[in-house]
Write a protein that binds this DNA or RNA. Structure first.
Lengths: 195, 195, 195, 195
DNA sequence: TTGTAAACGAGACGGTACGTCAGGTCTTGAG
DNA sequence: CTCAAGACCTGACGTACCGTCTCGTTTACAA
């Protein structure tokens, strides 16, 4: 009478579905994504998907949670030099975005987030930027940053927002470089020219 | 013998279609948007839409071009005080975003841009922010800004990116306030406390 | 592992579709017949029709096979008097044709057969006339018929052809009566006037 | 003030339209026939067709009247031997029907007649069989026919009906031969075997 | 000559139906 | 009780024609 009777949920099916989701998302983008296609690619009945997820958004959110999508958020380095560390991190994130394949997945992801609040939430949660980045920045002395503690959030948001702008821009107009962004957001380093 | 024969394109139909597109977009978001629905709401044959646009993206891009969507880009004020002007502009933009209805349209718009490069292009073009805002900031003295001329672009991008982040965030986590953002992006004013 | 998995075909849907086909055919004739209309009337998805039939012709042919259309072919009586039996049968068939409703269905049927070879085949097969009638005529003595065995087929064809001519004629010009047809096709009976 | 002003009806357009109708009918059959296709093939505006005809049926009926369709009705020969003449005529008519191209047009024609009473009427009128054939048969002595005058009509109908049956039959089951039909419909000739 | 009225080609328009595809639900039989 | 398979109803897709309606052009009678 308890909840443990019957066949157990198939881990194999679960993984196959999430994997197929990522693959389809990569191949076709968000709104050409079809449950039917995912089911077919995963070799799974549609019902199995609906039983456990129930919507495209939930699927993608789960992919995020399981870290199956190329993550824009890896731990920033900490060499002691905030400017250098942030510049490096930002440059690498931009390279990640500029890659054709990732670009398409990220765009699909933003599309999903824009349409589906629950994806947006998962994306925000996953977007470790807002934590990993903040964590790194928090180690910096006040002298190195321009803003006081409360607006570390503003800094992280500006960085992430800049990346999203780059993502949504045509390749021909990529927007500001990592250097320019850092120059804007952080005060000049001790060895910087006076102006 | 030239190409001008036959009945002329109906301006009335053109406008009805674009209007209906905006309405449907507002009501249902980008990926529940259907050509069929637009045609029905506009009182128009589907073929008339396909004849002139041929895709959801093109339709939306055209709406942008025709300024039919609630524009996030109005002319920033110029009182001489950059900090105050930018703070005001940003605050109003945030209010615009925070409004339920606009929020949905903007999200749909970002979704469309993420899925459809041509919409992205139109959106970037339309996003007067990058011109109107830059125009205002360019009038400021170097002393008022933190960055030299070349990275005005970085500044505008950071501002816009911050707004998009707010748009994609759950209402419960709106992110930094206008004040915080300005404090980050502009150097302290003359009457600001020293630190 | 075999081919029996999945939900079974719905008999209810099958019957509803064939019934709706007959109704629509009766109401609107063959070339105003629409799959969409049939699906709607049957309360069925179009796909279900296309899954199993794939064309208007196949649908109608199936209706014929299932005897859902008013049949022009009922068993001819056998009183021993071929002339009388044939005359009666023919008269009743003509009455059937002369009825407005049946007339429309039959015409639609002929239209379908003329456009669609597979309907033609089904119609020919179903047109029991060529079997039921021949069966009856075959019981007659040679003296009663004018032709030898091999051309019973010719006789049945002439009878059916005469009926089709009547079907395609305007009501104001119905063509020969049953008596006249029988007088043409069978030799005078023993009690007939000499000339 | 009278009705004679303005441009005259273009004979060239009229002919082009009827010709195109025949061609399209030959190529695609009745229910794949489109006014749009006819207009395009004739190099004519659709309105010109609708102005003068207004329906597919009327077009086809006009083609019949203008004798633009391969006629099944040519004058039967008169050698003095009714059996031989009728057999010959019937054989040639069957050959006409058996030809692939004609077969398709005739079937389209029957389809049109079945759907459209006005075509049926034109077809009946045109189907000279009922006049040309009757004319020939009427010259025969009573001894040569089996039926008295009044049912010449029955005879002609049986002949025509037999041809239509052949038209609607699959090629693999062409039905009775000309000889068989004549043997059924006419009394044995003077030199025929007794039974 | 010069109206002016009708017919013409072209083709846009609001519609209906096409045949296909995917969505989400339900049913079946195997595990 | 889950799974794969797959039939089901729903509804949108993009296309093809429908029959109507302008357009600008061409023709030909009437003033």
């Amino acid at each position: 009478m308890d909840g443990k009777r019957g066949r157990k949920r198939s881990e194999q099916a679960r993984v196959a579905i999430l994997t197929a989701t990522v693959d389809e998302l990569t191949d076709k983008g968000y709104d050409s994504l079809s449950i039917e296609g995912i089911a077919a690619r995963a070799g799974v009945g549609k019902h199995t998907i609906y039983r456990w997820w129930g919507s495209k958004g939930a699927l993608i959110a789960d992919c995020l949670v399981e870290n199956l999508l190329p993550s824009p958020a890896y731990e920033p380095p900490d060499t002691g030099d905030v400017r250098a560390d942030l510049t490096r991190w930002l440059g690498e994130a931009m390279d990640l975005i500029d890659d054709r394949t990732n670009r398409d997945v990220f765009r699909a992801l933003v599309g999903a987030a824009a349409e589906n609040p629950s994806v947006a939430e998962a994306l925000n949660a996953q977007l470790g930027v807002l934590s990993a980045l903040v964590r790194r920045l928090a180690t910096a002395s006040h002298a190195e940053l321009r803003t006081s503690g409360g607006s570390l959030d503003a800094l992280a948001t500006a960085v992430t927002g800049t990346l999203i702008m780059r993502l949504l821009s045509p390749e021909s107009m990529p927007g500001p470089s990592a250097d320019q962004v850092v120059a804007l957001l952080l005060p000049p380093g001790p060895d910087a020219p006076d102006r």
